[in-house]
C-alpha cells in the first residue's frame, strides 16, 4: 500500500516561451523519504519543484502528488502540503506570533502555534515585529509556516539559504524530526553538505534534466578518490620527481600532476592500494610525503566533476528567463 510513491514525475516538461527549463524529468519520492534536488542556478530546480507544488501546469509528461494532479486538483491535496518558497513575504508590521496565528487560521489542521515557533527556535521572538527580524529569523519563520499544517508532504526550496551554521543545523534537526514522524520531503539546496546530511536520495539536475540520481554513497562511489602530498627528500627539500619516477599505480585516473614545488596530485579508483604502493615507494627511497592527504570522493567533488568546472553560476532570477 505504501509502495506507490507520494510524488511521481514522469517525463515532465516546462517551457518559458522557446526556452525549456525542465526537459523530461522522471522523479519519485516515497513515503517518509527525503529527496534532495541539487543543481547550479539555472539547472531547473525551482521550475521543477513548482510543477510538483502545483504552482504551474506541466507542459508535458505527468506529475502526481498523493495520487492527484497537483495543479488541476490542487484543492484536494493543498491541505496536505507544506510549501516553503524561495521567496514569500511577510507584513512587517505584524509580530511573529500574529503572523503565525494568522497563517494557522487559514489551515485545515494547524498545529499549536507556540509549539511550532519553539521548534524553529523563534518562541523568544514571538512578540517582535517581523520587520525587525534578521534574514535568518525570517527564514525560520518561513519554515514554521510551512510546517504549521502538519503536512504529509513538505517542499523546501533552499530552506537554509542565509542561515548561520547553528541555525542551519537546527533546521536540519527539525527536518529530521519531521522525517522520523513520517513526513515526505522534497528539498532543493545549494549546500551539498545539507544534501549529505539529510537526503535519503539525491537527484542532480543539469540543463533541465536529471543527470544522476541515487544515494550519496551511489553517487560518490562512481567518483575517483583524491590523493595529494608534497614529495621531499631526506634533507627536507622539496623534490619534483618526474611522473616516470612514480611507481605504477593501479587505479589512477588520468595522469598524476606534479608541480615545481613537488606537490603531487592524483585521482584514483583504488585509493587503499595506490596509497600503499606510494608509501612503500617513498619508504624505499627514504622520501617524505608531507601534507599527505588521501580521501574518498565527496559529494561536492562528484557534483563539480559532473558540472564541468561548476562555474556556470547564473543569477537566480535568470533561471526562468529565456
Amino acid at each position: 500500500m505504501t509502495s506507490q510513491p507520494i510524488v511521481s514525475v514522469r517525463g515532465a516538461r516546462r517551457r518559458y516561451g522557446s526556452f525549456e527549463a525542465v526537459r523530461g524529468v522522471d522523479l519519485d519520492v516515497h513515503r517518509g523519504e527525503l529527496v534532495a534536488l541539487l543543481g547550479t542556478n539555472g539547472a531547473g530546480k525551482t521550475s521543477l519543484v513548482e510543477l510538483v507544488e502545483g504552482l504551474a501546469p506541466a507542459d508535458g509528461g505527468e506529475v502526481r502528488v498523493l495520487g492527484h494532479d497537483p495543479y488541476r486538483e490542487r484543492r484536494r491535496i493543498v491541505g496536505s502540503l507544506g510549501i516553503m518558497l524561495q521567496s514569500a513575504g511577510f507584513s512587517g508590521d505584524l509580530t511573529v506570533a500574529e503572523t503565525a496565528r494568522t497563517w494557522a487560521g487559514t489551515l485545515t489542521r494547524p498545529r499549536a502555534v507556540d509549539e511550532v515557533l519553539r521548534a524553529v527556535d523563534m518562541a523568544h521572538r514571538a512578540d517582535v515585529r517581523v520587520a525587525s527580524l534578521s534574514g535568518g529569523e525570517k527564514r525560520r519563520l518561513d519554515l514554521a509556516l510551512a510546517t504549521m499544517g502538519d503536512p504529509e508532504v513538505l517542499f523546501l526550496d533552499e530552506p537554509t539559504t542565509g542561515l548561520d551554521p547553528e541555525s542551519r543545523r537546527a533546521t536540519w534537526r527539525l527536518v529530521q524530526g519531521m522525517l522520523a514522524a513520517g513526513t515526505t520531503v522534497l528539498l532543493t539546496t545549494h549546500y551539498l553538505e545539507e544534501a549529505e546530511q539529510l537526503a535519503d536520495r539525491i537527484a542532480i539536475l543539469q540543463g533541465g534534466r536529471i543527470v544522476r540520481s541515487g544515494t550519496v554513497a551511489d553517487i560518490v562511489a562512481a567518483e575517483p578518490a583524491r590523493l595529494e602530498c608534497v614529495v621531499r627528500g631526506r634533507d627536507g627539500g622539496a623534490l619534483a620527481p618526474a611522473v616516470a619516477d612514480l611507481p605504477v599505480l593501479a587505479g589512477v585516473v588520468g595522469a598524476p600532476d606534479i608541480d615545481h614545488t613537488g606537490r603531487l596530485r592524483l585521482r584514483t579508483t583504488a585509493l587503499q592500494d595506490d596509497l600503499y604502493t606510494l608509501l612503500q615507494w617513498a619508504d624505499a627511497r627514504q622520501l617524505r610525503l608531507d601534507d599527505l592527504d588521501a580521501r574518498s570522493a565527496s559529494l561536492e567533488q562528484a557534483f563539480l566533476a559532473m558540472d564541468g568546472a561548476g562555474t556556470r553560476a547564473v543569477d537566480d532570477t535568470s533561471e526562468v528567463a529565456a
Binding site: 493543498v78 510549501i83 521567496s87 514569500a88 513575504g89 511577510f90 507584513s91
Partner: peptide
C-alpha cells in the same frame, strides 16, 4: 503593498 511584500503570494500558495 501586500503584493509587493510578497504576502499575497504566500497566502495564495497556502489554502486560501
Amino acid at each position: 503593498a501586500r503584493r509587493e511584500e510578497l504576502v499575497l503570494k504566500r497566502y495564495l500558495v497556502g489554502e486560501c
